[in-house]
Amino acid sequence: MSTLLKAQSLVRTLPLTVPVTLVRDISLEIQHGEFVAIMGPSGSGKSSLLYLLGLLDIPTTGQLWLDGQDTSGFNEDTLADLRLAKLGFVFQFHFLLAEFTALENVMLPMRKLARLSATDMQKRAEKLLDDLGMADQEHKKPDQLSGGQRQRVAIARAMANDPLIILADEPTGNLDSVSSANVKEILRDLASQQGKTIITVTHDPVFAKAADRRIGLVDGRLDPNWVHPNAQS
């Protein structure tokens, strides 16, 4: 296993009138094919750390290497290009474009990347949706889908450009228990069967248990001793 993502002394401070530090001095390495769960109490900076690792946010200080590339000093457009080609996101809210069908939503990142022909894009998007059990929902718009289905489309969209890493921010936070279980299973399968590198923020200790590694976060700092209050139950 080789290092895919390496963070060194990441600090993220919001420059408000009273500056708020979200992430304090975090260094970590994530290997190819690793399934990592970031855990911690609310407001501990889990999401903020995920945004930094996902190149969505720029650290106040510290360095980040993605796939051997030092990303410090990259401008917004370069970071966007890196995200497009190498990262896929799944958020708590599905963020599907309401006017587009499931298939079109999945094709969106492909069309932006523009590496495949139009027919290949469609084939790939169909396959991705098919693999997630959405074969017959392809031409439905998000408001015709259930919460769980929407999140599956969002996962397919995250997979669209075959990213190196999938970053998920409480992907099941808005779902009922059945859908939630389904989405978790999909992510676990992506990690275990397809060998995808997955970094997920979660509150769910059972889901976290399936991960290769759990990172505890308290007050923006790594806390190796942090245990979820529900871990025993």
């Binding site: 996902g54 917004e76 457009d77 995200r83 809210f93 474009l97």
Partner: peptide
């Protein structure tokens, strides 16, 4: 705004 956010997070530039 949400659409813009997701499009930018998936790799759209500000100019797009």
């Amino acid at each position: 705004t949400r659409d813009i956010a997701i499009m930018k997070s998936m790799g759209f530039h500000a100019s797009d």
